[in-house]
Write a protein that binds this DNA or RNA. Structure first.
Length: 122
DNA sequence: GGGCTGACCTACT
DNA sequence: CAGTAGGCCAGCC
């Protein structure tokens, strides 16, 4: 019946956002992930845009480390010079993330590398 | 319900 | 290296 059809899609969008937020909360300080990677880790490959939505709709009470999410080119996805962009950059640099020409080396500042630094030092 | 937008990505030229 | 094209899909008219 119609109810069975409804159960084919058990997860609501709210649930999807919860998964996305959980992944973002798992990004260690000093590391960044791009939107597509967050989507993939949350179980939604190819849906990078959803991550942006989830971030925008995240409740303030959640205190997400939203600044650790950048785009696939390693650049901040807010208009350059905007308050948000500057805030994000400041927070990242405070954690040791380096910008070269406004670009972050995603490989060098991946969560994996961050964990390595934690264990082995810089 | 159709159309547009957007904190995006990959692949290809 | 830059620029384009197509894919993606939840919100919001």
């Amino acid at each position: 019946m119609a109810e069975d059809r409804a159960k084919v899609e058990p997860t609501s969008n709210e649930d999807r956002y919860q998964k996305v937020w959980a992944v973002i909360e798992g990004i260690p300080a000093g590391a960044v992930l791009n939107y597509g990677e967050v989507a993939r880790l949350a179980g939604f490959p190819g849906r990078a845009r959803m991550v942006g939505m989830a971030l925008g709709r995240a409740p303030k009470s959640r205190q997400l480390p939203w600044h650790r999410v950048v785009n696939a080119q390693g650049r901040i996805s807010f208009p350059e010079g905007s308050v948000k962009a500057r805030t994000q950059r400041e927070r990242l640099e405070a954690e040791g993330v380096e910008f070269v020409d406004g670009v972050i080396d995603l490989d060098r500042f991946s969560p994996q590398r961050a964990m390595d630094r934690l264990l082995w030092g810089p």
